[in-house]
Nucleic acid binder design. Structure first.
Lengths: 188, 188
DNA sequence: CCACTAACGCAACGATCACTGCGAGGTTTC
DNA sequence: GAAACCTCGCAGTGATCGTTGCGTTAGTGG
């Protein structure tokens, strides 16, 4: 176990030097994830691509796994706004559509696959944020006094097919198909 | 692109020398996948664990990715027998139960995650065999003249939640939960 | 304006990796 | 039984990786 490797220590103000190399390294990781076969994703290569020295990357992140986890965290945080249309069905349809569009991005997909390959510790990062958004939608509907499916059911019916199709198959995540998932979760 | 690297060339008879080192290397990969963090999965390490020389592994497989694909192929082929109880519901329940038990094995799970991480070309291997079995169950029921869900629906309702929960979460794949998936696919 | 802290660049090091001729041992075929 | 073929072990090579000590530079607070 690599201790806990102090997270991005201090200094992450949007103009600072640290923030700049951080952005450059993140960008390099995303680019390499789409280009290369995936096994060539190593610290010296990332550092060269980012225009920084490998030493810096080793000191700040320590390993490719932690770096990927960091990239995933900043990638999957507060990116999809939770829909709020007043209708559960419509909220879920927009949510499924947004998630499908997000997972259709090759960069995002490659990132998810790489994260899964690092051992699964960071795999939760790729889904917890989405699951929280789903919970928020359902709890809001429940607060309106309506019957709602359980969160687990919603995860099985929406999140699971979206992630499964994206990660394990080559099929496209069409908007119609994503909406169809909602109709199976909420039978008329 | 590494050409196509001739697949396990010749000589795979169950007693031959090639078959023996092949089995040893496969076993070593499975063991290392469970032990290590995953990033230490390299050819020399695998070879040392298997008791063979790295040269042999390089020549026969060429890269870790191809080796993983080979392991996955022999792991996911003809292992789960397709249930045939005469009842679609019962067939699917047994199928879901078997798959849940299979994915609960840490070795199998680590293999699936590693395969996904190599880029996704070999990810299909982990699911195609299962999907064919699902198709066989459904087509058999259809041949009996009964109404059946589409294969895509069955994949979304069974395969996707099973793989999603196994790969992305740490929750256990309990038999009751697996059976519950079938009851959502086949209402009534 | 000046000292202080922290992040980065630089150079060097051992270790490991991926790969390549060459020879030995086993298996098949005539 | 002998020759041809394939597979594996062995030793060595260049390249890359992960890591560390030290000087430099950029931001921070008095």
């Amino acid at each position: 176990m690599p201790a806990q490797s102090s997270p991005p220590r201090t200094d992450t103000r949007p103009g600072g030097r640290s923030a700049r190399v951080r952005a450059a390294v993140h960008q390099a990781v995303k680019e390499l994830l789409t280009d290369e076969a995936g096994d060539a994703l190593t610290i010296p290569v990332i550092a060269a691509r980012a225009g920084v020295h490998a030493t810096t990357v080793y000191r700040r992140w320590g390993s490719v796994g932690e770096l990927l986890a960091d990239v995933a965290t900043s990638r999957f945080s507060g990116d999809v706004v939770v829909p709020d249309t007043g209708s559960l069905r419509e909220d879920l349809e927009r949510y499924a559509y947004d998630l499908a569009k997000d997972l259709s991005d090759p960069d995002t997909l490659a990132l998810v696959r790489a994260i899964v390959g690092t051992g699964g510790e960071g795999a939760g990062v790729c889904r917890m944020e989405r699951q929280r958004q789903l919970e928020a939608i359902i709890e809001r509907e429940q607060a309106r006094g309506n019957r709602v499916p359980t969160v687990d059911r919603a995860v099985e019916a929406l999140l699971a097919p979206l992630y499964y199709r994206a990660v394990f198959t080559d099929q496209a995540l069409s908007p119609e198909w994503a909406r169809g998932l909602v109709s199976h979760l909420l039978p008329e």
